[in-house]
């Protein structure tokens, strides 16, 4: 049952990822990427990472992709469907080679998932406790990074007088 759900989600994720890089129109690419993120959120749930599944939907599929969609529509890229690279096939071959290069180490892993009883559930309670005790310094740094990014984005798009 779990395997069947995994396969459905994986096929959805991979096929919409392929749509992302093959579509001519950026709007369709953004929508396909949203569907990839939703499928990945489902897979996080299968891995007992409930908090991250929620964050994946809220931050990635919600905030980040809306930002992408805004920019795509703001730029109004009509007639911007560039002549794509004729050497595209090289990129495809490189990608396949990449998959094969990484396949061998993956299927040699003998350790499997620990049984569910030995795994702390990745819910907001457990993650929050770790975040505000062991990881409180990186957490504060992350807030500074977000502040700097906000200021940086405003400075970049500001009109220069």
């Amino acid at each position: 049952m779990e395997l069947a759900i995994f396969i459905v989600l994986a096929v959805l994720a991979i096929s919409s990822a392929v749509v992302v890089i093959t579509q001519k129109s950026p709007v369709y690419s953004v929508l396909a990427l949203v569907s990839t993120f939703f499928a990945l959120a489902g897979i996080y749930v299968l891995l007992n990472a409930y908090f991250l599944a929620m964050i994946q939907i809220a931050v990635y599929a919600g905030a980040i992709m809306v930002l992408f969609l805004f920019v795509v529509m703001l730029l109004n890229l009509k007639e911007q469907y560039y002549v794509e690279n004729p050497k595209k096939i090289i990129g495809g071959v490189l990608g396949l080679a990449f998959v094969f290069a990484l396949l061998f180490p993956i299927f040699e892993i003998e350790k499997n998932l620990v049984p569910e009883s030995q795994m702390p559930v990745g819910d907001a309670y457990n993650i929050g406790i770790r975040l505000f005790t062991d990881y409180v310094f990186p957490f504060e740094i992350a807030s500074i990074i977000l502040l700097i990014a906000t200021v940086g984005a405003i400075v970049f798009t500001k009109k220069h007088s």
Partner: peptide, 28 residues
């Protein structure tokens, strides 16, 4: 689900991303 299947999905998604960076010209 075995670990290698999850990692396989991860590898495939990463490779799709690499191919996208290598072949597309639209910065977005």
């Amino acid at each position: 689900v075995p670990v290698s299947l999850y990692l396989f999905l991860s590898v495939v998604l990463f490779s799709v991303g690499v191919v996208g960076v290598l072949t597309r010209k639209n910065a977005i």
